[in-house]
Each structure stands twice: as structure tokens, then as C-alpha cells.
């Protein structure tokens, strides 16, 4: 999905604010959101991490950039809870008013009226799925990544599309996020770490002697 979440290489996001060295949770609401992931999982509306990541990618883009990390999670969880029929947005708005707060703030969630159905649990707790099929590529091979965008969830960042790199690690088979996020099965594929030279990614703007490594599934590699 060509969403605002795909941030690698984007410009204009300013300097990095690392002045505050914080505890894990700044404020209680962030821990509420964290706890909601367990609720959503127990209710069966959140079945896997890929589905959750995609639910976050589907939130309002302005909220994505301004509501901070747990605000994004909240939007993703609200997508899943509403799509799964646990809550309605009218109910949430009414509760905000009952609690005495302003209900006109920007809402991150944008639940779909035709949501994907993810109706299976993971085969194993971890996403590793060793494969009998031989990997198509070996460490040291040069590869070219797919140049076209994906309409759904994917883990091929836009900045690494249509680029030439070198396989530096092979990780055997893993659940394919592009399929699993949408409830279309785990369909494991071989996973590789691919090294891209800075110049290949950024041209003349690249800094000297920089290499960026990205973990890519076999179907992301076309050559």
C-alpha cells in the first residue's frame, strides 16, 4: 500500500527529537492501547501481526503523522474492533461525551465497510516456516526488486523498489505478510537480506560508503 507509513527516504520530517529519555509508557492511555491489543486478539478480531500492521497503515494519514506511535496503534485497533462488530464509532463518540470530553478531535480509525476476513489462527507462534523448496537465490547473488507498487499490505519499502542489490543473508521460509494480512493464508516464502548501495537508492544525493539492508521475500525479487 502506497501509504504515508512508508517513510524511508521521505524528506521534510525535520530533526529528530531525542531530548526526552523516557520510560516505556509516557502516559496511561498508551498502556491502555497496548492492553487493547490483547483484547482484540482474545476477541478474534486481531489474528496476526501482518493484519495489525495493515490496520495501522489504513488509518487517517494526518493522524498517522501526528498522533504518535500509540495513537497509530489505537487507530488500527479501532479499525479492527469496529470492523469485527465489537464496537461502533457512534458508541465511542457517545462515550467520549459521557466522560465529559470534546468528541470533535481528529479520529485516526477509518474502518472499512468491506473488511478482509481473517478467519484462521497462526499455525505456530513464530512466523518462521522452514521450506522444503530450494531458495531461488544464494548469498552473493545480485537481485533486482519489483518496480511496481502493491495495492495491499507489503513489506517492500517504496525506496527499495526497482533497485539492484546483493543477497547477504538467507533466512529460509517465513509467513508472507502480503497474503497473511488479508486473510489469504500464510503462503510462506524464502526471505533474504538484500544489501543496497547508497548510490543505487539515492543517486548523487547518497552519502559516501553507506549500505542499506532490507529483508525481502522471494516474490519481491524478479531477477
Amino acid at each position: 500500500m502506497d501509504g504515508v507509513h512508508d517513510l524511508g527516504g521521505k524528506q521534510g520530517h525535520g530533526s529528530i527529537d531525542n531530548a526526552v529519555d523516557e520510560t516505556a509508557f509516557h502516559e496511561r492511555w498508551e498502556a491502555i492501547v497496548f492492553a487493547l491489543t490483547n483484547v482484540a486478539a482474545e476477541l478474534g478480531v486481531l489474528r496476526n501481526t501482518d493484519q495489525f500492521r495493515h490496520a495501522i497503515e489504513r488509518i487517517d494519514p494526518v493522524a498517522y503523522l501526528s498522533h504518535t506511535y500509540y495513537g497509530r496503534w489505537l487507530g488500527g485497533l479501532e479499525n479492527l474492533l469496529v470492523e469485527g462488530g465489537i464496537l461502533t464509532q457512534a458508541q465511542i463518540r457517545a462515550r467520549i461525551e459521557v466522560l465529559g470530553y470534546d468528541s470533535t478531535g481528529l479520529v485516526a480509525a477509518r474502518p472499512s465497510t468491506e473488511p478482509d476476513v481473517v478467519d484462521y489462527d497462526a499455525e505456530h507462534h513464530v512466523s518462521s516456516r522452514p521450506l522444503e523448496d530450494q531458495p531461488k537465490f544464494r548469498v552473493g547473488d545480485g537481485v533486482l526488486t519489483r518496480g511496481t507498487p502493491s495495492t495491499g499490505h507489503t513489506r517492500l519499502p517504496a525506496y527499495a523498489r526497482g533497485k539492484r542489490g546483493e543477497v547477504v543473508m538467507w533466512h529460509d521460509g517465513w509467513v508472507l505478510p502480503d497474503s497473511n494480512a488479508h486473510g489469504r493464508g500464510e503462503n510462506p516464502e524464502h526471505l533474504y537480506t538484500v544489501a543496497f548501495d547508497g548510490g543505487e537508492l539515492w543517486g548523487d544525493a547518497a552519502e559516501p560508503r553507506t549500505v542499506v539492508h532490507v529483508d525481502l521475500f522471494e516474490s519481491y525479487l524478479i531477477l
Partner: peptide, 26 residues
């Protein structure tokens, strides 16, 4: 309060009422 903090509190309130969440879990 930030809008996302307010919304999280409303979700917590609704889900506690529905017995899906406890304050202790948070």
C-alpha cells in the same frame, strides 16, 4: 488531553463495561 488519549479512555471504558478488559490488565 490529546484526542487519542481521550479516545483510548473511551475505548477502555466501553470494553471494561463489556467485560473484555480490566484496569488491572493495563
Amino acid at each position: 488531553l490529546k484526542p487519542q488519549a481521550i479516545r483510548a479512555e473511551a475505548l477502555e471504558s466501553l470494553l471494561i463495561e463489556q467485560n473484555h478488559l480490566t484496569a488491572e490488565a493495563v
